Measured scan of single mutants.
Amino acid sequence: PAHPYDRLKTTSTDPVSDIDVTRREAYLSSEEFKEKFGMTKEAFYKLPKWKQNKFKMAVQLF
């Protein structure tokens, strides 16, 4: 299930529990994912792991 970005980011005051914290981005809706990352999930997962992590750090999901 998708969760709002505000509850997934590492600085959230009301974090979602029971998620894989190493894959926070996977819980974003497709729309919100595209808004935050500027690309689709499919394109994101084709990137090298280090680049994925760099993007995730930039949007507080790492």
Rank of each mutant, 00 (worst) to 15 (best):
K36M: 13
M39E: 00
K56R: 10
I19L: 03
R23M: 12
A2I: 15
A2S: 15
P4R: 06
A43Q: 14
K56E: 02
F33V: 00
Y5S: 09
Y27C: 13
S12E: 05
T11P: 04
D20C: 11
E35G: 07
K46P: 00
V16P: 07
K46Y: 05
K54A: 13
L28F: 08
I19H: 04
E32V: 03
T40L: 06
P48S: 02
W50R: 02
P4I: 06
F37W: 02
D20N: 10
P15H: 08
K36A: 08
A26P: 03
F44A: 01
E35C: 12
H3R: 02
S30H: 13
S29Y: 03
K34S: 14
F37Y: 03
L61G: 11
L47Y: 03
T40E: 09
E42I: 10
L47W: 03
T10W: 04
R24Y: 08
I19K: 03
F62E: 15
K34L: 15
S29N: 09
E31P: 04
A26T: 10
D18C: 14
V59W: 12
K41L: 11
D18H: 06
F44Y: 01
F37A: 01
K34P: 02
A2C: 15
H3E: 07
D6V: 00
F37M: 06
E32S: 05
F55D: 01
A2T: 15
A26S: 14
Q52H: 00
K49W: 09
E31T: 14
R7K: 11
P15M: 05
S12G: 06
K41N: 01
M39C: 09
E42L: 08
F55G: 00
T11I: 07
A26N: 07
K54C: 15
P15N: 04
R7G: 07
Q52M: 00
A26Y: 12
Y45T: 07
R24I: 10
P48I: 01
K54Y: 12
P15L: 07
N53L: 12
A58P: 01
K54G: 08
V16D: 03
N53W: 11
K36Y: 15
F55C: 15
T10R: 02
N53D: 14
S17K: 14
D14F: 08
V16I: 10
V21Y: 10
V21L: 04
A26F: 11
F44V: 00
K46I: 11
E25T: 04
T10N: 14
T11F: 02
S12L: 07
E31M: 08
Y27W: 05
D6N: 01
T11Q: 07
R23P: 04
T22P: 03
R24W: 15
Y5I: 11
T11S: 12
P4K: 08
K41Q: 07
F62C: 15
I19D: 03
L47C: 01
F62G: 15
K54D: 12
P48A: 05
P15T: 04
K56S: 02
E25V: 07
R24V: 06
T40I: 05
F44T: 00
D20S: 03
E31D: 12
T22M: 07
K56N: 03
T10E: 05
A43S: 11
K9S: 10
F44W: 04
S12H: 05
P1D: 12
D6W: 09
T40K: 06
T40H: 07
S17A: 13
W50H: 04
K9Q: 10
A2F: 15
K49R: 11
R24L: 13
M39S: 01
K51W: 13
Q52W: 01
L28T: 02
L28V: 02
F33Q: 01
T40V: 06
E35A: 10
S30P: 14
L8I: 09
K9D: 08
L8R: 00
D20L: 02
Q60L: 15
P1A: 11
D20I: 05
V21H: 09
G38T: 04
W50K: 06
K36E: 02
Y45F: 10
P1I: 13
P1W: 04
E25W: 03
R24N: 05
M39A: 00
E32T: 02
V16W: 03
S17D: 12
R7V: 08
S29L: 02
T11G: 10
V21C: 12
K9C: 15
N53C: 12
E25A: 05
T22A: 10
Q60S: 10
E42T: 09
S12Y: 06
G38H: 11
T10M: 08
W50I: 02
M39Y: 02
L28A: 01
K54S: 14
Y5E: 09
A58W: 14
G38I: 02
E32H: 02
D18Q: 07
F37N: 00
T13D: 10
H3Q: 06
R24K: 08
E35S: 10
P48Q: 01
D6C: 09
L28W: 03
F44I: 00
E42C: 11
Y27T: 04
H3W: 15
L8W: 05
R7L: 07
V59K: 12
K9G: 06
E32C: 11
L47G: 00
Q60V: 04
K46V: 10
R23E: 04
K54F: 14
S29E: 05
K49F: 09
T22N: 10
H3I: 15
A26K: 11
M39I: 06
L47R: 00
P4F: 07
F55S: 03
